[in-house]
């Protein structure tokens, strides 16, 4: 199928007018058509979570939905986390401070996963964070530093800075 559909995606508050095949998944549209390559594509079947983004505030796999399905929603990607002046989001800062990444391939997915979950429940317990982090795959860190980073960021965010 080569026919395309004209759609507008709202990504990190900016509107992107695209012409995409209906079959194109959201992750590919974000990367190829919006030029936002922070969202990574790993397994392409919902297991690894590298492509996790927020759609209307909820963390979802962008490889398991089509770009045309995202029209009319508010999409947030890793590019939208830091403020305009370059100040990192508390989660980004915590991943840096606590060594929550090594190669960095999985990191955008983990960040968006945690942003979405902490927005829904800012009071997450360590057990809940452990369960949450099991949603995504990381082959470098052994997860321990990711858990530490999410815990630290949750505490900072609850203390009332941004996020």
């Amino acid at each position: 199928m080569t026919e395309t559909r004209d759609i507008t995606l709202d990504v990190n508050g900016k509107r992107h007018a695209l012409s995409v095949e209906p079959r194109k998944n959201l992750a590919d549209a974000l990367r190829d058509d919006c030029g936002l390559t922070g969202t990574h594509v790993g397994c392409e079947h919902g297991v690894c979570g590298a492509c996790t983004v927020l759609v209307d505030g909820r963390a979802v796999r962008s490889c398991l939905m089509f770009a045309v399905q995202a029209e009319g929603t508010a999409i947030e990607t890793v590019e939208g986390l830091a403020s305009e002046d370059g100040e990192l989001h508390p989660l980004q800062q915590a991943f840096w401070d606590k060594h929550g990444l090594q190669c960095g391939f999985c990191t955008p997915g983990f960040l968006m996963l945690a942003v979405g979950a902490l927005r829904e429940n800012p009071e997450m317990t360590d057990v809940e964070i452990r369960e949450l982090v099991s949603s995504n795959l990381c082959r470098c860190t052994g997860y321990q530093n990711i858990l530490t980073a999410v815990r630290a960021a949750a505490d900072v965010m609850r203390a009332g800075t941004n996020g």
Partner: peptide, 12 residues
């Protein structure tokens, strides 16, 4: 419900 896949899958 917590036994169904993972959090982002349950969101969709």
């Amino acid at each position: 419900v917590p036994n169904i896949a993972h959090y982002p899958i349950r969101n969709r």
